[in-house]
Design a protein around this nucleic acid. Structure first.
Lengths: 233, 233
DNA sequence: TCAAAAGTGTTCGCTATACACCCATGG
DNA sequence: CCATGGGTGTATAGCGAACACTTTTGA
């Protein structure tokens, strides 16, 4: 799959370039964050952009997006989902570039720096600078998709550490959905779903009280999914 | 955008071809149908396939899908939605082809024959032959998307004539979702949403009874959507 | 002593669901 | 007279939403 300097691929009709872009969400306990890359080259040199790159000829879109994710965060098996393909002929000033967009959910606490030399930084969702290309739009769409998807799949857990308290979980849902829940109702609803395992372990809070710790129960989720269920919030 | 015989587009890296495929759903009053095209050329010559074609360099994916829809059904403004992009490097035996897939909902009663010389036919969803390429998979995914989407948007009305009876609407929902509803509950739930306008007109049934006719009320839907609402079925 | 965060249970109202009878017609 | 299809209303159970008090401790 390597290439010479000369232009070696010839087509009768023009072919667009195809890239994958990856919206990587992380939750810091307070806010939803997104990983952005500072562009080192024109166009939009110096502007922030979503991690992404050209799709290789022998890899699927998913593999390309996972490669990006790996390069930037070191994560290999995070939740990742294709959500839209952007095809505006003018979206890249150089040439026609179609991008297949994915979003990924990672545990912020477990992220290590990427292999990549490029400058990468986490931004809170409400403090995003103006992005390169049409990435503002892509990011908005990704956020909307995430909100929609959380009604069908318990993807929130992908953003939390393995062990978490009920209020951490509630904060996450509140941040993603932009609403407030009653503590008691949220807790009982969550527990009733049967997707949480309560751990023996407790965690000390700032005020020396302890809070229960829970873990997401993948097994009962798999069983529930078999039967088909709805996650209502 | 015209071209000579020689190969005039040169790239340093290989570029995939990009096509759009369009899953066109229609409802005949009993079953969900899909429009298929019989392939006239290799590969898969003689096999049925989804309508689709190469994306032109100056059109968006949506425009390409709409062009396909127009050519096959004469419809210009049907409901149409991008749902997934297929990127398996082996999905086309000739060369690498990425396809952006859309589904469209049309009123079967209003479809006129397409401009296209190709042989096109409607197939009931439960009588689909083996399709060319990975179109079986694409069709399965489109059906799943449709089922999912109907929980959020009243897209069912796109498949019915402008005026319809409550039982037509119910049959449609039952076919799409694969469940049975109680007549009385379905009706009262639907009416409570406030999206239907009851018409003066009645329609005579086989047995000379008359049934109420309704029309989808786009205006109250727009208002409801403003406030945000959920369509539960 | 005051603010912050967590644990705990009950009540009320709404809605989903289940269900039965009447009527008109065509066969 | 029976089968078909449509119209209509009620009763019950379960769920979502609202809500208050206690405890511990750090400031």
């Amino acid at each position: 799959m390597e290439n010479k300097e000369e232009l070696k691929y010839h087509y009768k009709y023009p072919h667009p370039s195809v890239t994958t872009d990856c919206v990587i969400f992380g939750f810091d306990g307070t806010k939803l964050n997104v990983l952005l890359i500072e562009r080192g080259i024109e166009p939009f040199k110096g502007r922030w952009a979503l991690p992404g790159g050209f799709l290789r000829m022998d890899e699927t879109g998913l593999a390309g997006a996972k490669r990006e994710l790996m390069e930037e965060t070191g994560f290999k098996d995070a939740y990742i989902k294709q959500f839209h393909t952007y095809t505006d002929p003018q979206r890249d000033p150089r040439e026609r570039v179609i991008t297949i967009a994915y979003y990924a959910l990672v545990r912020l606490s477990e992220v290590r720096g990427g292999d990549d030399a490029a400058r990468a930084e986490w931004f809170a969702l409400d403090q995003i600078p103006t992005l390169a290309f049409d990435h503002d739009r892509i990011l908005r769409d990704a956020t909307a998709e995430l909100r929609k998807q959380i009604h069908f799949e318990p993807i929130g857990f992908e953003l939390l550490p393995e062990k978490f308290t009920m209020s951490q979980l509630q904060h996450l849902y509140e941040v993603i959905l932009g609403v407030k829940f009653d503590r008691r109702n949220f807790s009982s609803k969550m527990l009733k779903l049967g997707l949480l395992t309560e751990l023996e372990e407790r965690v000390p809070l700032v005020n020396k009280k302890v809070a229960f710790l829970y873990r997401f129960n993948h097994k009962s989720y798999a069983e529930l999914k078999e039967k088909g269920f709805r996650l209502e919030f």
